[in-house]
Simulated assay, not measured.
Amino acid sequence: MKKIILIVAIFLGVTACKTNPFTGKKIMNFYPNSQIFPTAFAQYDQFLGENKVITGTADANRVTKVGQRISSAAERWLTANGYPGYLKDYKWEYNLVDDKTVNAWCMPGGKIVFYTGILPITQSERGIAVVMGHEVAHALADHGAQRMSAGMVQQGLAVAGNIAIKDEKARGAFNQYYGVGSNILGMLPFSRSHETEADRIGLQIMAIAGYDPTEAADLWRRMKANSGGQAPPEFMSTHPSNDTRIANLTAWAPLAKQEAAKFGVVSFR
């Protein structure tokens, strides 16, 4: 078993060679853009074909406008920090979909959807910028590919355990506890770290785009109120708690303004 784990560790060390430009840290990503983007683009087109896309309204135009400003700000930051061409394969698209779900998402490669259900909580262009910055940050940091890579490792270790453990009773115990343990101790913290990272990157990008980053904490206060306090304990969730996010965003807002000032942005919408 130790030999198998060592082989997996060496494999991860070799393959985790891409750098997150916003953190400077190496990331685990087994999927190049050339592999993951075409699939994401096809899934996005299929989703749009199966749902009611709203176009030409003030809300739809606002989502597009904010998205264009956020993606432009991301490109400015990346170019200024030594990553020109980082977004060359991205195909940005911003769509508003008629759905009461309080959600928005960005697929790898820059394909974005806002649901109408989130607009009463965003309330304004600034609120849309908070959500847009967060979702775009997921794409910029390759969080989707990282989650897929982590899932591959989780599966690989499960297979390795079943091969290495010869005793049937011990193997049964391993399978019983591995799924829960690897989820609570591995996958869930991994997901929460991505959400926190996207919050911080998104805050920075929205500020460079000219949107007041202090809006982010206010938006999450509205999110908390909308949830009615119904949320699992943080350690059982894919996301940090609302209170954790509010505290983080409040602390990071002045830093985001300092970063925006490097680009000449000193007043905010």
Rank of each mutant, 00 (worst) to 15 (best):
G156W: 08
Q46D: 14
A137K: 09
A260T: 08
P84T: 02
C106A: 12
A74P: 00
A164R: 03
D218E: 14
A158P: 10
W105C: 08
F114K: 04
Y211A: 03
F174Y: 13
M152D: 07
I128V: 15
M148S: 14
I184M: 15
W252I: 14
A141Y: 01
H194F: 08
P21V: 00
P232D: 01
K111C: 06
T122E: 03
G127F: 05
D142A: 11
Q258R: 12
V266G: 03
V63G: 11
L96I: 02
P38A: 02
I165G: 12
I10D: 02
G179P: 02
Q123F: 02
Q35T: 13
Q123S: 09
Y44A: 01
Q258S: 13
Y83P: 02
L48D: 04
G181V: 03
S227H: 06
S241T: 08
P254A: 07
A104E: 06
G210L: 09
V131K: 06
T244W: 02
L119F: 02
G110V: 06
K18D: 10
I10S: 08
A225Y: 01
L249T: 05
A104Y: 10
F22A: 03
F114A: 04
P84H: 10
M132E: 07
Y178S: 03
A80L: 05
D45L: 13
K166Q: 15
N103C: 00
D98Y: 10
G109R: 07
K262R: 13
D99S: 14
Q258F: 07
D98T: 01
A209I: 05
V63K: 10
G127S: 08
F47A: 13
L87C: 14
